[in-house]
Nucleic acid binder design. Structure first.
Length: 504
RNA sequence: CGGGGCGUAGCUCAGCCUGGUAGAGCGCUUGCUUUGGGAGCAAGAAGUCGUCAGUUCGAAUCUGGCCGCCCCGACCA
């Protein structure tokens, strides 16, 4: 093959199409016969399992426990919180029947006809605030029952108009944390804690730098009092919301009647929160780190961190090479990275070396090792780092490699974070006027994160969104965004810059 | 839900305008050659041309209904 890159088109040529091709080339997922629903293949699911396990440990460390709630939500539950109901109304799958009747057709085939209409339809959960709220109402009687700190790993369904693998599918996997607290302060504290957990996880595990901040009213979760978000920038300079945590006030407690007898012997409504990340993280990771040869997975979450490719030019030495590779794999598996045993795979398939090599490049394995007869003799391995070019290869004495493997994986992890951070910082710009703003987000311009002093209304936001397809991604936390100035649209005084960007 | 396009082998598509029941590339299988490398040559397997109906001696090709998918908008973790 003479292709300069493994993926066509390249990122520059057509980013959305590149994304689709990368997912396919990495064999992570495919569209299924069910509209909007994907099949997550082992390589993609393995990544999800690692994300899941590592995040779960962080949830446990912050005092949460896992539980599981029904997939189906009584329609009436959704009617209890008006804003929430409206927010999800247009994307709900509804279950109306509970049995089928087989009808024989004249041509001998069978048609299944739904019968047994339900008195009250169920909605397939788009999120579980309402049904978990109902459980909380039963579980909470006294302030002594609080806080309630629950997480659930599950699938949810939102009937999206335009699905895209990992980024927006009708069914997706996620975790949703739901907590109930005695006071507003404590609930807000919980919301901020989880917001921080997401920020840390994205940075330290996925090597994605994010900007933590708060959503404006317009972008807020339906029914929430405050929504916090971590916003990432991907390589086409668009923003993607990578995780959210919501302070729900007493809105859902009121709707579900989560009441407790307080320390002062009066009945009070609980303050609740919810927070979640989804398989969208995988899409974010791909768009943040991928290159024109495919995905690049940060070592901490890679299904395999190291793949060993036996080089077997002659049949008579094949077994010897494979044995040596297996032995090396065993040695490496005894080592750890990020607190977990190294995940090492020996690719013994009887395929051409180049084919296997490119396959793992496209899948984004952080490190590839090649070992052949000559390397056995010289007691060395050929080391290829995925974050460097496909041809970059370093011959390292085997013992030295074993000794330095942690450090080497750490370097890749760090390099990916540094690269993503450099991209984001280079595409974040303070602008002052509406003219500059319009030019920044003009049809053919690159765009990015525009940092703007802002004091506009939701209606102003709406207008900008319709006009330029740009929204306020967040009101960022942190001193570097605090700045006295005038709103670029309304001229009103503003003490903080917000982030505008096009988004996924 | 509006506006446009498309449904032909596992994948990407040609053929349709000018009706005569199927083709290419990639992938797959086998063999030979090659190989520190996504190689070459040869042979082979694989499609009731989305679906239902109409026109016709005859339909992938013309006409209509239905279903599905893709792109552009509104919605979105």
């Amino acid at each position: 093959m003479s292709n300069a890159t493994a993926i066509t088109p390249t990122r520059d040529k057509d980013f959305p199409e590149w994304y689709q091709q990368v997912v396919r080339a990495a064999d992570m997922a495919e569209n299924s016969e069910v509209r909007g629903c994907m099949v997550i293949k082992p390589w993609g699911y393995g990544l999800w399992e690692n994300i899941q396990r590592q995040l779960d440990a962080k949830f446990k460390a912050t005092g949460h426990v896992n539980a599981y709630f029904p997939l189906l939500i009584p329609l009436s539950y959704l009617e209890k919180e008006a804003q929430h109901a409206e927010g999800f109304a247009t994307e709900c799958a509804v279950v109306t029947h509970h049995r089928l009747e087989a009808q024989k057709q004249p041509d001998g085939t069978i048609k299944m006809i739904p019968t047994g209409e339900l008195a009250e339809p169920f909605v397939i959960r788009p999120t579980s605030e309402t049904i978990i709220g109902a459980a909380f109402a039963r579980w909470v009687e006294s302030y002594r029952d609080l806080p309630l700190l629950i997480n659930q790993w599950c699938n949810v369904m939102r009937w999206e108009m335009r699905p895209r693998l990992f980024l927006r599918t009708a069914e997706f996997l996620w975790q949703e944390g739901h907590t109930a607290h005695e006071t507003a302060e404590e609930a807000i504290e919980e919301t901020r804690t989880m917001h921080k957990v997401y920020e840390d996880f994205l940075r330290d595990h996925l090597a994605i730098p994010v900007i933590p901040g708060e959503k404006t009213e317009r972008e807020r979760f339906p029914g929430a009092v405050q929504t916090f978000t971590v916003e990432a920038m991907v390589q086409d300079k668009k923003a993607i919301q990578a995780g959210t945590s919501h302070y729900l006030g007493q809105n859902f407690a009121k709707a579900a009647n989560i009441q407790f007898l307080g320390r002062d012997n009066t009945r009070q409504l609980a303050h609740t929160t919810s927070w979640g990340v989804s398989t969208r993280l995988i899409g974010t990771l791909i768009m943040a780190h991928g290159d024109d040869d495919g995905v690049i997975i940060p070592p901490r979450v890679a299904p395999n961190q190291i793949v060993i490719l036996p080089v077997t030019p002659k049949p008579e030495t094949r077994q010897e090479v494979i044995d040596a590779c297996e032995a090396l794999a065993q040695t490496l598996r005894a080592q750890s990275f990020g607190g977990e045993p190294l995940r090492v795979h020996v690719d013994k398939r009887d395929l051409q070396g180049g084919t296997k090599n490119w396959e793992w490049i496209k899948k984004g394995v952080p490190m590839r090792l090649e070992m052949g007869p000559r390397d056995i003799t010289s007691r060395s391995v050929a080391v290829c780092r995925r974050d460097l070019g496909p041809k970059a290869k370093e011959f390292v004495p085997k013992e030295e490699f074993i000794q330095s493997v942690q450090e080497r994986l750490g370097e890749i992890q760090d390099a990916l974070l540094a690269r993503a951070k450099a991209l984001r910082d280079a595409n974040m710009k303070k602008l002052e006027t509406l003219e500059e703003f319009k030019a920044y987000f003009a049809e053919n311009s690159e765009g990015g994160f525009a940092l703007m002093n802002w004091a506009g209304s939701s209606e102003d936001e709406d207008a900008l969104s319709k006009d330029l397809k740009v929204t306020i991604r967040c009101i960022p936390h942190g001193d570097q965004f605090a700045e006295e100035g005038k709103c670029f649209l309304t001229g009103k005084p503003s003490s903080r810059r917000v982030i505008f960007a096009r988004s996924y």
